[in-house]
Design a protein around this nucleic acid. Structure first.
Ligand SMILES: [Zn+2]
Ligand SMILES: [Zn+2]
Length: 738
DNA sequence: AGCACGCCGACT
DNA sequence: GTCGGCGTGCTC
């Protein structure tokens, strides 16, 4: 079964001096050699434990040893884990991501071995069955909770004490009491696997357009060759049913399917819908999983027991034995860009993963990224366009509210026309949503006496007032402090004033305008975890709420038939600040928000409050002119030589000492590569010039699209000495300038 | 990334 | 006199 023959140079694996290169999940420059002890057989990809200095770490056998170190200094591999080895494709993917993002390979490997506990065999869990024919001992009171647990066990599989207690609504002590009385039969349980999605289950009837799209995708999956497809269709065009067919085709081949979603789009609604189609939910992979869930899922994926994974960007690094298709839903979403640690764009890495693995990938969106759109237009990617479904959603009517004329009262943010629309909607017994992508009560607090502004000491950012929590908060580093009564600058009391609105303040205005209406805030800090979101979503679905005031968490994937009015409180919010993608992202976000209005029978109405109704983003949204917007945006990028028509890479120089940061940044600026078509801009203060106590300066390299920027940057960095107190982060294809 | 080694300030 | 601060450097 376990062959050692696929090593390119197998002699080192056998014979007297057997050594292997082991890549460790640490930011080291290369793999380290280890001696293979007698009796141990290793293949590339094997997960192993090795000594490193005084400690033991896990690693992955990367290939035959380099042999540069004399064998006397080699330490032996401690043990091999009993898990299927990382595949060749998996290892090449780690190397590819490392090379592209200019991250040490070990650092990328760390994302692929993120759950060391998964390498150990699972500990069997204690579970209980009803012991046949056992009678309660004399004096044993058959209480209600005890009876409920026995009844539960009479029909059903063995369950753990925790599960039983949970189902019976009592404590685990009740279960223990029954066990001590000899009424339960203990059994050891292997971790349970959820039901497997069944590809043979018939799907729903598809429209002819959906059928054609689904057939196209099925064929690509069956071909087992790489291709990238843009699946382009508005909300309600039935994209999801179409890509389910691709998943079904991958499972039919005995391969796995991966669905990537922005983290906040991974809702209970999504999972339910999947389960209805395939008879079982997929495995989930996201930041809210517990350690045990992570461990079981990782191990099950490695063993080929998980046919479908749905997850956030890190799901890309799970140990799939043989992926058959990747779906990137909401592919335009900026949440796919990982900005901390290894900096990568999961959508782009997914395309590379598909390429390396020889499998199709579908990028799905109603508002594709300009990158993807241009790739589809130039036929680098295929395109499947899904028209709006007959009987499906009609695009809502989008109106612009010109805040220069239609002014809200002082210290209020809802314009008269939006107030009127809210009144009408409520009178009609329908629901409304007010969208403002800003958490808290007010984004800025200032002193009316001296003008002092409350700023985060660690970041270039205002402190945001959270009135419900009675705190000032920094949204970048998490700093919290109580609201000051007196101005910290001039000492005057009662002069601190809230400036501008957040969702909490909008909720206040709503309560003032519509005291009878049932209103609630939906924001990531008011809803803790997917369960809270799910409860809120159900509550809205049951029409227990009239007005929802929401941030980004409301923009995704939830559909409410009675929600017919969407008011965007500040449509201009993302447009300020000069970000390269500001217009594109604002368009995508507002388009998605608009899609929340009026599905099903009722027409929807969307009102965008703006100070710049003439802005192309607003005009395109109002006119429903998607193609016109993309064309204009593409022309501007082409003109400026910006992505997707040019390439960017950013160097972020950071450190605690601002003068040292500046000195290193200047040295990098002087050593920058310059030629006719490669330019380096900066150093300039980075978008957050101070972040978590570190001062940051940025240099931006701009090159033609065909340029390979990595070698240029590598040479550039070698020309400059970087002191240890300074960190230089490389962001190839920076996404956000903010 | 850890973890040790190492060389200077305030403590039992 | 030691305890401990974290700067620097190594780990096959
Ligand atoms: Zn003041
Ligand atoms: Zn901060």
């Amino acid at each position: 079964m376990r062959e050692t023959t696929d090593f390119p140079a197998k002699p080192q694996l056998r014979g007297p001096d057997r050594r292997v290169a082991v890549l460790l999940p640490l930011p080291l420059r290369e793999a380290y050699d280890y001696r293979v002890p007698d009796g141990m057989e290793l293949v590339p990809g094997d997960y192993v434990e090795v000594p490193l200095g005084p400690r033991r770490v896990i690693g992955v056998v990367w290939g035959p040893g380099a042999g540069t170190l004399d064998s006397g200094r080699l330490k032996p591999v401690v043990r091999r884990f009993d898990v299927p080895p990382m595949t060749e494709v998996g290892r090449r993917f780690v190397e590819w991501v490392a090379a592209y993002t200019m991250t040490p390979p070990g650092f990328v490997l760390r994302m692929a071995v993120s759950v060391p506990a998964a390498l150990e065999p699972p500990k069997p869990m204690l579970a209980y069955l009803r012991k046949q024919g056992a009678e309660p001992p004399p004096g044993f009171k058959m209480t209600d909770p005890r009876r409920r647990i026995l009844a539960l066990l009479d029909d059903g599989p063995p369950r753990t004490p925790a599960e039983l207690a949970d189902e019976a609504g009592c404590g685990v002590t009740v279960v223990r009491g029954l066990a001590e009385a000899g009424l339960l039969e203990p059994v050891m349980l292997q971790p349970t696997r959820l039901g497997r999605p069944d590809w043979q289950r018939p799907g729903p009837a598809l429209s002819p357009d959906q059928r054609a799209a689904a057939d196209d995708l099925r064929e690509r999956v069956a071909s087992g060759r790489y291709s990238t497809v843009l699946l382009d269709g508005v909300t309600g065009s039935g994209k999801t049913e179409v890509y389910y067919e691709a998943i079904s085709a991958a499972l039919e081949q005995g391969k796995q399917a991966l669905v990537l979603l922005p983290e906040i789009a991974l809702s209970a609604q999504w999972l339910d819908r999947f389960a209805r189609r395939f008879g079982a939910p997929p495995a989930e992979w996201h930041s809210e999983l517990t350690g045990a869930q992570r461990r079981d899922t990782w191990r099950a994926v490695a063993k080929g027991e998980v046919p479908v994974v749905v997850g956030a960007r890190s799901a890309l690094f799970l140990p799939y034995p043989e992926l058959g298709v990747i779906i990137v839903d909401e592919e335009h979403d900026s949440a796919y860009k990982q900005e901390e640690g290894a900096i990568y764009h999961a959508r782009d890495m997914a395309v590379a993963r598909a390429h390396l693995g020889g499998l199709p990938i579908a990028l799905v969106s109603a508002t594709p990224s300009l990158e993807t759109k241009v790739n589809a237009d130039s036929h680098r990617y295929a395109r499947i366009a899904l028209p709006a479904r007959h009987g499906g959603a009609v695009l809502p009517d989008v109106e612009l509210v010109d805040l220069r004329r239609d002014r809200p009262p002082a210290r209020h943010w809802l314009a008269p026309s939006l107030r009127k629309a809210l009144t009408d909607t409520l009178a009609g017994g329908e629901q409304a949503m007010l969208f403002l992508n800003r958490r808290g009560y007010a984004p800025l607090t200032l002193c009316r006496a001296c003008g002092h502004r409350m700023q985060c000491p660690n970041c270039t950012a205002w402190l945001v007032e959270h009135r419900l929590a009675r705190k000032l908060q920094c949204h970048h580093c998490g700093l919290q402090q109580p609201l000051p009564h007196a101005c910290p600058e001039c000492g005057e009391e009662g002069t601190m004033a809230a400036c501008g609105p957040g969702v909490e303040r909008i909720a206040e205005e709503v309560a003032e305008l519509f005291p009878e209406a049932r209103a609630a805030i939906m924001a990531s800090d008011t809803l803790h975890g997917p369960r809270a979101i799910q409860e809120m979503v159900e509550s809205i679905g049951r029409h227990e709420l009239d007005i929802i005031i929401g941030t980004q968490v409301m923009a995704k994937g939830h559909h409410f038939p009675m929600l017919t009015l969407v008011g965007v409180v500040d449509a201009d919010l993302g447009l300020n600040g000069g970000d390269l993608r500001a217009a594109e992202r604002t368009y995508q976000l507002l388009h998605q928000v608009a899609g929340r209005a009026g599905r099903g029978e009722r027409p929807g109405r969307v009102m965008l409050q703006t100070f710049m109704p003439e802005h192309p983003v607003m005009q395109a949204l109002a006119a429903g002119d998607r193609d016109g917007f993309y064309q204009l945006e593409a022309e501007m990028r082409l003109e400026a030589g910006m992505p997707p028509f040019g390439r960017l890479a950013a160097l972020i120089v950071s450190g605690e000492d601002p003068t040292l940061v500046e000195r290193v940044a200047m040295a990098l600026g002087r050593a920058a590569p310059r030629s006719d078509d490669v330019h380096v801009l900066g150093p300039a203060p980075a978008p957050l010039a101070l972040l978590r106590g570190r001062h940051r300066r940025r240099l931006l390299l701009k090159a033609p699209r065909s340029t390979q920027v990595q070698p240029l940057i590598a040479e550039w960095l070698e020309r400059v000495e970087i002191p240890p107190a300074i960190r230089v982060q490389i962001d190839v294809d920076p996404y956000s300038f903010l």
